[in-house]
Nucleic acid binder design. Structure first.
Length: 110
DNA sequence: TTAATGACCCTCG
DNA sequence: CCGAGGGCCATTA
C-alpha cells in the first residue's frame, strides 16, 4: 500500500471521478456517442455537469466529440470540428447539425 | 459550512 | 423551434 504523499496536494476523490470518466469516454467506439448524462450514469453518478467540466479541461486527451448533449445537438462553437470527425467515423446524423442518437447511442454494456 | 459555478437534463408554454 | 425555470451534483472559493 502506498503511504500518503504529503508533498503532493491531497487529491480527495476528484481524481477517481476524473479517471472513471476518462475510462468511459475512451471506451466509446468510433462512430458512436454518449450523452454527458449517460457518461455520468456509467460511473455511478448523475453529475452530467461535472462530466462536462472534465471534458472542457481534458485538453485534447479525450474524444470529446463522442460526448454530446442529450438531444443530439452539436457543441456550440465546435460544430465544424465535430462534423469533421463524424464524417470520418460515419456517425449517423439526422440533419447536418444534429446526431441520430437513436442509432449512434452507445453504452459500456454493449 | 455556505455560496457560486458549469462543454447538463427535463418539463412546460 | 425557442426560451424560461427548476433540479442535479462535483468542484472551488
Amino acid at each position: 500500500m502506498k503511504p500518503p504523499e504529503l508533498s503532493e496536494t491531497a487529491p480527495s476523490d476528484y481524481e477517481a471521478f476524473r479517471e472513471a470518466v476518462y475510462g468511459v469516454v475512451e471506451a466509446i467506439p468510433s462512430g458512436r456517442v454518449m450523452s454527458y448524462g449517460e457518461v455520468a450514469a456509467a460511473v455511478g453518478s448523475r453529475a452530467a455537469r461535472a462530466v462536462g467540466r472534465i471534458m472542457a479541461h481534458s485538453g485534447g486527451e479525450l474524444p470529446w466529440w463522442r460526448v454530446v448533449y442529450a438531444d443530439g445537438h452539436l457543441l456550440p462553437g465546435y460544430e465544424a470540428q465535430a462534423l469533421d470527425r463524424y464524417r470520418a467515423e460515419g456517425t449517423p446524423m439526422l440533419s447536418p447539425l444534429r446526431l441520430d442518437l437513436r442509432r449512434a447511442r452507445w453504452s459500456p454494456e454493449g
